[in-house]
Amino acid sequence: MSRRPALAALLAVALLAAAGARAGAESLVTSLSTHYVRITANFTGADLVLFGAIERDARTVARRGGYDVVVTVMGPRQTFVTRRKERVFGIWMNVESRTFIDAPSYLAVLANRELTDIASIATLRRLQSGLDQILLPQVIAGDIGDVALDDPLRSAYLRIKRDQGLYREAPNAVTFLTPTLFRSAIPLPDNVPTGVYEVDVKLFADGALLARQTSALEVVKSGFEQFVFTAAHDYGLLYGLATAMMALLTGWLASIVFRKD
């Protein structure tokens, strides 16, 4: 990620903050370094920068405890199935499975300190902030609902997604530049799914939510990658025939090139 978009984002925040807002309460102004992440042939992941400013005016009360910020980035929803293996007659086979319906394909919870220090568990649960607080609807005996945090299938799901780099909770990823200006880095690994991502910024003070601001960013394939993807999806037969022809051509060329007689 070059410095220029990050700088532009910072400028935008400063200008918007100067414009002022409703009196009394704090409000949030945020800006992303880019709202459009392009996946090209040499894509190996991206780092986005989010800048935010907390607006106050003369009538805003002083916050002795300082401000806390929680940034939640959520990727497009997908349905996953988590399975558990067990040894049956000497062979490891899947014995238990659980379907996670419309779970975020990507989830990053970034904050300036530990979430449990920012607000109470009850507040965090209500706002669905944090990997342990987010609601993960699952199919259980025909019903749909979430289960206890220590449920083995639920924690295995979170652990595997975290290992893939797609879920993360970082209590040190938001940095305050001044008491009212902050920045945060949003890491997108190379295996990010394409689609629309929701960026949700929450401002806390003394354990209470003061302001909230949401924006979106989009991860798209571009150029050749986009062309191949569209061709495969919209013109399946032609695409298949072209691939098969490509195979025959490659095979034929090789037999010509390597011909010895």
Partner: peptide, 9 residues
């Protein structure tokens, strides 16, 4: 190594 697996449906 991991008795759990996660797959996208």
């Amino acid at each position: 190594t991991d008795i759990y697996t996660v797959r996208i449906i």
